[in-house]
Design a protein around this nucleic acid. Structure first.
Lengths: 199, 199
DNA sequence: CTCAAGTCTGAAACTTGTTCTAGATTAGCG
DNA sequence: CGCTAATCTAGAACAAGTTTCAGACTTGAG
């Protein structure tokens, strides 16, 4: 399986160094504010001020709050992917490897629940105008899951199962974040849905 | 199986007739606006004007746009439940009965995709302050699924499976609504996840 | 019927996401 | 260096959700 993770940007537009730095400051500010107060605390004026950039510039880099948080999620997922690559799951059965991976990700999110709140709510709330960015997040998530399944697992007719796992992952997180499900229920649901891979 | 669907309100506050009528006008206006333009078209000032009620009154009945749309979803789900009761699924296996039911609901939503957009996005975006209402929606959905499983199916250790089906149902709808999944994929995913009941 | 409490109305104000504008800065180029 | 286009800044302006408030209307108890 090829990987191109260390160079995340063969992007359309080449950015100068200062621009790259601005983008980074913005994403960091977004992350910091989200960690402090979740979705509502990521206010565009705050992000702009906190990253030393004018409001108009912020909107040039990220055309909406949802775009910004989706990019923040890409950023965080990238780091997660890095970490997972270094310490792959230990189990042998694909379904257990995937469950182990998602549960590890869940534990990571529990450490910064408000950041998770901001990112996940943004991504699920996104409308068509953000589909490119959300699609990138979705592809990254799919990659993480398929990678976790391991080299042996044929990805043949399991595309639907992978999508269902992803659906459950997102929706279970949402119910947990809004206080309508416990950590235990989310854990159980992740295990349950991963069972779909045992066929 | 007990059912209390025809009397949906043993609610905390008894409403006068005029109040009941106002509430109904508001919900109808919300539905109409949603059908016409989705989430964004349900604007509180419009709802108020369109239902002949002052803005402040609208907010007394529904403390936020999300509350309003969650209530609209309860309303619609109630009607769906009615319709399903009259014509229950034909299959015999619980998993197929559930799939058939959800696919029928999906077909209904396809007839008013913008209404679906407004309701589903509201419910998944809802934060803790709306958990009571969202919980009601969730319970209704669970009831529909469990009813569809049929009298024979023991609900023993399937709680997690039912939750996973619900998660998939919501998240699959969202990806369809935002144009990132086709009707065919959603259909397939619903069938796939219902397979969890065959154990 | 009469009064007090609760409800509804109309309108203004406030909040936060988003857009727009005029002028300052920067980047690339001859 | 000097020019031109693109970018950035500060700040006003706009949009829609939400809050607030004074006054009119309803309701229910006596």
């Amino acid at each position: 399986m090829g990987h191109m993770s260390t160079d995340p940007k063969p992007s359309p537009l080449p950015l100068t160094e200062r621009q790259e730095a601005r983008r980074r400051r913005i994403l960091d500010a977004s992350t910091r504010l989200a960690c402090g107060g979740g979705f509502d605390a990521v206010q565009m004026r705050e992000v702009a001020e906190s990253s030393g950039v004018a409001l108009g510039t912020l909107y040039r880099y990220f055309p909406s709050k949802i775009h910004l948080l989706a990019a923040t999620m890409q950023d965080q997922l990238g780091q997660l992917h890095e970490a997972l690559r270094k310490r792959p799951p230990a189990a042998t059965a694909p379904s257990e490897r995937v469950a182990e991976t998602l549960l590890r990700a869940f534990r990571a999110l529990q450490r910064e629940p408000l950041l998770a709140d901001a990112m996940v709510r943004a991504v699920i709330f996104a409308d068509r105008s953000v589909s490119a960015e959300v699609d990138a997040v979705s592809r990254l998530t799919t990659t993480i899951i398929v990678d976790a399944m391991g080299p042996g697992a044929e990805t043949g007719n399991r595309e639907s199962a992978v999508r269902v796992i992803e659906h459950t992952w997102h929706a279970a997180l949402v119910t947990w974040l809004s206080g309508r499900a416990t950590v235990g229920q989310v854990t159980e649901d992740i295990r349950t849905v991963c069972g779909l891979l045992d066929r």
